[in-house]
Design a protein around this nucleic acid. Structure first.
Lengths: 131, 131
DNA sequence: CATAGTATTCACAAAATGTCAATACTCAAA
DNA sequence: TTTGAGTATTGACATTTTGTGAATACTATG
């Protein structure tokens, strides 16, 4: 596993640095965190919810499981094994920790800044188009 | 250099696929394209403009130069060397090509979808907070 | 028993990023 | 005239992230 111990390579859940726009921005992670804040769930369920609630289909389940492992390593989630589920093998159910809630809040701030930048782009682009 | 020949690893300027949210999203590239659509410029200038117009400081110039090379390789930009600039070494001035304009448009669609997802996040998050 | 759906993890190749540094030209101060 | 600062661009290589394919496993149904 990558980084570890320092969130997601940045100050999430810790510092509160501003976004580094030079690199790509994550978008499924905050969504996952939000879903987990509302209700604990296991990876497979999250994949379904991302599709249902946010229309994110064609998402390799790997992406979700991997993100889950990273978040767990960051201390944002705590897992419990749910034996005896309706069917299939045991499920690893993740619950958001207090650190995870903090990370979600930090991330929502970042989403907001991203939104502002998007607005700036939109404005400038529409000005450009109607030139 | 990476991929090449097929845009940015995705259908920009070509296909018109919808975003793949599972991976990180680029944000400086569309901004660069927009700046170049308004006015041709060289890398160093773009770095300044990104800071002035969009508040993007702390951006490693490498990021910009690298993106410029990729976009040139994708046929979105065509460069000209500007000898005899006010001072310093020759500047490589990039102009947006028609393909580049198409890429900008495709990207703006994607930015819009990203904006919608951001709104969905925002709504869900504020509902969660006031629970 | 074979198969399909539910669930999770590992491993390795490929791609993207971070970083350090080399190269070069101009102007102004020492 | 040597030095240093600001302007500009590029290359190389280590590290991180992603993409992909597949292994493992349990349950219900045909």
């Amino acid at each position: 596993m990558p980084g570890r111990g320092r969130g997601h390579g940045r100050g999430h859940g810790g510092g509160g640095l501003r976004p580094r726009w030079g690199r790509r921005m994550r978008v499924v992670e905050p969504l996952m965190l939000l879903l987990l804040a509302q209700k604990s769930a296991h990876g497979y369920r999250l994949v379904e919810q991302l599709a249902e609630d946010f229309g994110i289909t064609d998402l390799p389940p790997q992406t979700v499981y991997r993100a889950l492992q990273e978040m767990e390593a960051s201390g944002w989630l705590s897992p419990t094994w749910d034996m005896d589920g309706a069917q299939g093998p045991p499920r690893k159910v993740y619950r958001l920790t207090p650190d995870g809630e903090a990370a979600l809040e930090a991330w929502s701030t970042e989403m907001e800044q991203l939104g502002q930048m998007l607005d700036a782009f939109k404005d400038a682009y529409s000005r450009f188009r109607s030139r």
